Simulated assay, not measured.
Amino acid sequence: MTGSIVVGYTATAAGADALALGVRLARAADARLHVVIVLPLEGTRSKAVAPERAYEDLLAGQARSWLEDAVTAIPAGLAHSAHVRFAESFGEGLLSAADEFGAVLLVLGAANGGALRRHRLGSVASELLHTSTVPVALAPAGLSGEADAGLPRITVATGTRPGAERLLQSAVRLAAASGAAVRLVSLMPLDVPAGLNTGAITLVQDAHVDQVLAAARDRLPAETEVEVLQAGGDSIEDAVAQLDWLPGEVVLVGSSRLAQPRRLFLGSTAAKMLRELPVPMIVVPRTGAEAGDR
Rank of each mutant, 00 (worst) to 15 (best):
M1A: 13
M1H: 12
T2E: 13
T2I: 10
S4F: 02
Y9H: 10
T10C: 03
T10H: 08
A11T: 09
A13Y: 06
A14K: 05
D17N: 09
A18L: 09
A18W: 07
A20F: 06
R24W: 02
H34I: 06
L39H: 05
G43S: 05
T44K: 01
R45V: 03
S46H: 06
A48F: 09
E52Y: 12
A54C: 06
A60S: 13
D69N: 12
A70S: 07
A73S: 14
A73M: 05
L78E: 00
A79W: 01
A82M: 05
V84F: 01
R85I: 13
R85G: 08
F86M: 02
A87S: 14
S89M: 11
S89D: 08
G91M: 01
G91F: 01
E92H: 13
L94A: 11
F101D: 05
L105P: 06
L105D: 04
L105V: 07
L106C: 04
H119M: 05
H119N: 08
L121Y: 11
G122P: 03
G122L: 07
G122W: 04
A125N: 03
A125I: 02
E127W: 07
E127S: 11
H130W: 03
V134G: 03
A141D: 03
L143E: 08
E146T: 12
R153S: 04
T158W: 10
A164M: 02
A164F: 05
R166D: 01
L168T: 12
L168H: 10
Q169Y: 03
S170L: 08
A171W: 13
L174Y: 13
A175V: 15
A176I: 04
A176W: 07
A177R: 09
G179K: 08
G179I: 01
V182L: 14
R183G: 12
L184I: 14
P189K: 10
L190P: 10
L190S: 14
V192I: 15
G195E: 04
G195L: 04
G195R: 07
G195P: 09
G195D: 04
N197L: 08
A200V: 15
A200G: 06
T202H: 11
T202R: 15
V204S: 03
Q205W: 12
D206N: 09
H208N: 10
V212P: 08
L213D: 14
A215C: 07
A216R: 13
A222W: 04
E227C: 14
Q230C: 12
D234C: 08
D234A: 15
S235E: 04
E237I: 14
D238S: 15
D238I: 15
D238M: 11
D238W: 11
V240I: 15
A241P: 14
Q242V: 12
L243E: 15
D244G: 15
G248D: 02
E249W: 10
L252R: 07
S255D: 06
R257P: 02
L258Y: 13
Q260G: 00
R262V: 00
R262S: 00
R262W: 00
R263L: 00
L264F: 01
L264Q: 01
G267E: 03
G267I: 08
A271M: 14
M273L: 15
E276K: 15
L277Y: 04
P278M: 04
P278V: 02
P278R: 04
P280T: 07
P280K: 10
P280S: 04
M281L: 11
V284H: 09
P285E: 03
R286T: 00
A291M: 06
